[in-house]
Simulated scan of single mutants.
Amino acid sequence: MKRPAKPAKTPDDPLKLRLDALHDRYLGEASLALDPLVIPRSFASGGDQELAAFVAAHLAYGRVAPMLSAIEAVLAPLGDHPAARAAEPGALDHLRAALKGWAWRFHTGEDMAQWILAWVRLSRESGGRGLEPHLVPREGATADQRLSALVLRLRRELPETPGLRFNLPDPLRGAACKRWRMFLRWMVRDEWPDLGLWRDYPRRDLVVPLDTHVARISGFIGIGRRKTPDGKLAREITEALRAMCPEDPLRYDFPMAHLGILGDCPGVRRLPGCAACPLVDLCRAGDLAQK
C-alpha cells in the first residue's frame, strides 16, 4: 500500500528557516571558487555550457584544485566553442592527440575523447537539443528509468575502461549516481548557481547529488539517517528537502555541500566557532564544547 504523501513544511518550520538562511549565505560568485560548475559557467552558449558540464560533472571527484585543472585541460583543445569544435570531422583524432598523457585518477585522455564524442552523437540524435530528450521523464518511464536506459546504452557503445565504467553507475541498481545527479541539477535548475538550460525536465524529479559533505551534514541535522552513501540515502535526503520545498527540492543542495567544501563546518559542534552557522541550533555534530 502506498504511503500518503507527507505535508509540505510550513514557511516557519525551524529547519526550513535555517536552511533558507544557509542558502542566502552562499549566494554569489565567491561561493563557486572551489566548484566545478565555475567552468561551464565560463562559456557563453548553452551548447558549450552543456558539453563543458558533461565533462566537468563526471570528473568531479578527488582533491578540488587538481580536479579543476584536469577539467580545464580536457576542454582546452576545444577552444572557446567546444560543442562546435567537438562536432567537426576528425575531432576524435584531434582530442586523442591533444590529450595524450592526460590523466585524472581513474580517467585517461582516451576516455575523455570518447566521452565528449558520445555527447556529440547524442546531441545530434536529439536535433541539437543536447541530452535533455534522452533523459526527460515521459509517460511510462520515470526519470531514473530514463537515466538507467541511457547509462546501459553508453555501456554498450563506449569502451569498457575503468574511467568510463566509473561514469556509468545504474540508479536502478541502487547507485547514488552523484555525478549524473550533479549534471542534472546544473541543467535543470534555473536559480543560483545552476545553468537552467533545460525546460522540459521537472525540477521536482531531481535527486540530490550525494557527496560526503551533503551526507555528513544531513546526518548532523537529522534528515539523512542511513550510514551507507547509496541511492537510498540520496532519496531519503531528497524527500526531506522536498518536504520543505516541493517545487525545488535541490534548493538547499549547493549551500549544504559548500558548508563542507569551503571548510565552514568543522564536523564537531563547538562554540563560539559554530555560532555563525544558521544550522547550529539543530546540529547534532558531536558534543557542544567551549573552545
Rank of each mutant, 00 (worst) to 15 (best):
L168S: 05
H134S: 14
V55G: 04
S42H: 08
A73I: 01
M112G: 05
P82W: 08
F106K: 12
E29R: 10
L99H: 13
R85Y: 00
V38L: 14
A44E: 13
R153V: 07
L59C: 05
A143C: 03
P40Q: 07
V136S: 13
F166A: 12
R138W: 02
A53E: 08
P133F: 09
L164M: 07
G140K: 05
V64D: 02
A76F: 02
P159S: 08
I71P: 00
A56K: 02
A113Q: 05
G109Y: 09
V74S: 11
R146M: 11
M112L: 14
T108P: 09
T161E: 08
P66Y: 04
R63Y: 02
H134P: 05
G28S: 09
P89T: 09
A143T: 02
W104N: 05
D111F: 07
W115D: 11
L78D: 06
P89S: 10
G47D: 13
V74K: 09
H58E: 10
P171W: 06
N167C: 14
P133S: 11
E132S: 07
I71N: 02
A143N: 02
R63A: 12
R146A: 11
P169Y: 04
V38I: 13
R129V: 01
L154R: 10
P77Y: 05
E110R: 12
A118Q: 10
S148L: 02
M67N: 03
A73L: 02
Y61Q: 04
E72P: 00
A56E: 02
R105D: 13
E110G: 12
V136E: 10
R41M: 13
S69M: 10
L152K: 13
E29G: 00
V38Q: 15
A86H: 12
T142G: 13
I39V: 14
G79R: 12
L150Y: 05
G79I: 03
G79D: 07
E50H: 01
R146G: 00
A65V: 09
R124M: 09
R153D: 05
R41G: 04
G62Q: 12
L131I: 09
H94S: 14
S69D: 15
A56R: 02
